[in-house]
Every structure is written in structure tokens, then in C-alpha cells.
Simulated scan of single mutants.
Amino acid sequence: MDFTKLIRPHILSLTPYSSARDEYSGKAGIFLDANENPYSSVLGKPFNRYPDPYQSEVKEKLAELKNTKPECIFLGNGSDEPIDLLIKALCEPKEENIVIMPPTYGMYKVCADIQQVNIQQAPLTEDFEIDLDNVFDAVNAATKIIWVCSPNNPSGNILSKASILQIVKAFPDKLVVIDEAYIDFSTEPSFISELENYENIAVLQTFSKAWGMAGLRLGVAYAHPTLIQVLNKIKYPYNINIVTQGLLLEALDKNDEKDRLVAEILSNKLKLEKELSELEGVVKVFPSDSNMILVKFEKAKERFKFLLDKQIIVRDRSNVALCDDCLRITVGTAEENQRLLETLRTF
């Protein structure tokens, strides 16, 4: 792939900010270069030094877990940071566009709107599958990024790998971003394994869902090293703080615990899906490969308000394409799910 044509010319020629840790990345020495406080922090904890701007230790460990290379990894403040940076790096405002497949994760559109990047829509089918005709109609010469959310949000289903690969192969000069925020809940393998086969793929994942670390705000982009270098070039210098890096290093030793949590959530999901499908007023429970269930209700908005009044918070998605009268329900604990069901029965 010719990355010089994919990336905005002024980004390629940009001189990035050079931090003190760019000049010296060692851990030993007398640090008089970054205007830090030499006495530790007011909390008495070692927060007085700037963190590694490229998170080298974390990436080494993560690369081993994901069977990829550290130079193919970008760590961001949630997945939203690489979403924003990819649009910033590739798309000329008011001239070029991204393609999205509604209903889908809303931040692709928000980040494009903020940066005045045009948006082409290729709606999914009524069963929330990729409509290849819509995609091929939406992509044009000004398209830089094609966004694929799989498993999809808000519908929860995994999208056809064959269809995604058909898009990747059909548009070798476009970047196809596969957002896999919910991949740990699916039986399908990650597209990370395809990075060596297709240079025009980027994969997004997160530690917010299966790993249970949403409060730490940590997302990951996996892509060709050239693209990762560009993201590192335009990110804020110290985008992942020292506490988050330390906690992530601990978490990566607990992959088995992550798998245990996922298994429990999936078990709860099966029970919840069954009981929801038997409730009066439920029109359809959509298939899910994630930790959420999209449900079509009679009087969806009234039920949403009813639940809210009982301090049970679900997501009203009825204003989203193809999701008329639908509520999105995150799978909770067994006790939380039971309270949800009991409350719905009293509507």
C-alpha cells in the first residue's frame, strides 16, 4: 500500500513535538531535563516523573498476548483517541470522506463532523448485516476510511468476515478500520491475524468491556507500522498516564480472569435473552455476539422511561437507523438482570 497517498501530505512532512523522554528513554540517572518535581508527589507516590510516551513495556507484553509486533500497536485514551487521530491523519477537511454503516458507533460521525470531514453512509440490512451494494455505492475517489464495527454497536452481532474481506480486497487504497470493542464476547477470531496479509487494515480494541477497565480509558489500534508511526507523531506526547500503564501491565497477567468474567457474562446473556423473548410486549430479541442485547418492544419509549424511574438504566436506541422501538440492554449480573425482568413484568 502506498501510505504516502493515504496520509495527508502536511502530516507526512510535519515535525512532531519532541519530549524529554524522546531524547533519553532510560530509567536510571539524574533527571534534570523535563522540569519535573524531584521530590516525588504531594501524595507521596511516584507520580513526579513523566510516563513513557510510547508505552514500550506495555506494548511488548500486549504484543505477546495478541501474537503481533510492538511496532504494530498504538495505545490511546480509549478507542476514541485512535478514531479521532485516524481521521485527522488521513482526511482533508471539506474535501475527503469516511464511509460508515449505520446503525453503528456514533463517534465515527462525531469525530468526522468535528474535523469537517464528509460522511458517506452505507446502511446495514434490516438484519444488521453488511450490504455490499450500499458500500460500493458509498465509496468514491474521495473516500479515505471505511469503518466497520464488528461485533456491531448497537445491534451486538458479528458482521460477515467474508464481506469485510471483500471490502478490504476491493479497496486496497482505502483504510478499512474494524472496530472490535466487543470481540472478546464473540467466538469469531480477531482481524489482528490478518494484518500481515492486508496493509490497508486497522483493528481497534478496548480494555473497557471484557477486561472491565472502562474507568481507566484505554483503547488499542493495531495496524501497519507506518500508520502506527503517524499516530505516534500526531498524538499528545504523554497520552497514557503512568498509573494506567502500571495497572495495564498487571492486568495483562490476568487474561484467565478476563476469560472467566466473559464466560459469566455470556452465561447471564443466554438466560436474559431467553427470558426477554418470553416477556409480553417484546417484539424481537436480536442475536448478539457481544455483552449487549438489542430488543424491539411495544411502547419502547414508555418502557424506557418506566425503567428509568425505577433507576434501571438501559439505552434508548429507537432514534437510530433500523432500530425503531428498540432498547439496548447491557448484560448485568444475575441479580441485576433479574431485577430488570421483574420490573419489566410490572409495566
Rank of each mutant, 00 (worst) to 15 (best):
K296T: 02
L43G: 05
V148I: 13
R317H: 12
G76Q: 08
Q311K: 15
L159E: 06
G156N: 03
P38L: 05
C91W: 08
I87L: 06
C149R: 03
E57N: 12
C323P: 10
C323T: 00
E23Y: 08
H224P: 07
L340Q: 09
L216S: 00
L261Q: 09
A181W: 07
N255Q: 13
E57D: 14
D325L: 08
S190P: 00
K209A: 14
E95P: 02
L294M: 13
N197F: 08
N97E: 08
N337P: 07
G78T: 15
A28C: 10
P51G: 01
D113H: 11
S40L: 15
G246S: 12
E342D: 14
V58A: 02
Y238S: 08
R8P: 06
L261N: 11
H224V: 08
R303H: 02
A170V: 03
N77D: 15
Y39I: 00
K296W: 07
I11E: 01
K144T: 05
E273C: 15
E81A: 08
E273S: 15
Q55Y: 13
D84P: 06
I242W: 01
D22A: 01
K66P: 01
T346Q: 13
P16G: 11
S79D: 08
Q120D: 02
K258D: 11
I234F: 03
N77C: 15
N118Y: 09
Q115P: 00
L308D: 08
A141L: 11
L65D: 00
Y238Q: 06
S40K: 01
A89K: 01
P123C: 02
E194M: 09
D289Q: 01
P189V: 12
E298V: 14
N35C: 12
Q116C: 02
G246A: 05
R315V: 14
Q120I: 00
D113P: 06
K274W: 10
Q120Y: 00
P38N: 05
E196A: 11
G246E: 03
R317D: 11
L175V: 06
A321D: 03
Q338L: 04
Q166I: 05
T206D: 05
I7V: 12
F128S: 09
I201R: 04
P70K: 10
D133F: 12
A223D: 13
G215T: 03
T125C: 15
I313Y: 10
C111K: 15
E129D: 15
G26T: 01
F191D: 05
T15Y: 13
K109D: 06
D2F: 09
A141F: 01
A63Q: 01
P154Y: 07
K88I: 04
K233W: 09
D259N: 15
I146A: 03
A122T: 07
F306W: 04
R339I: 12
I87F: 01
N319Q: 11
M107R: 12
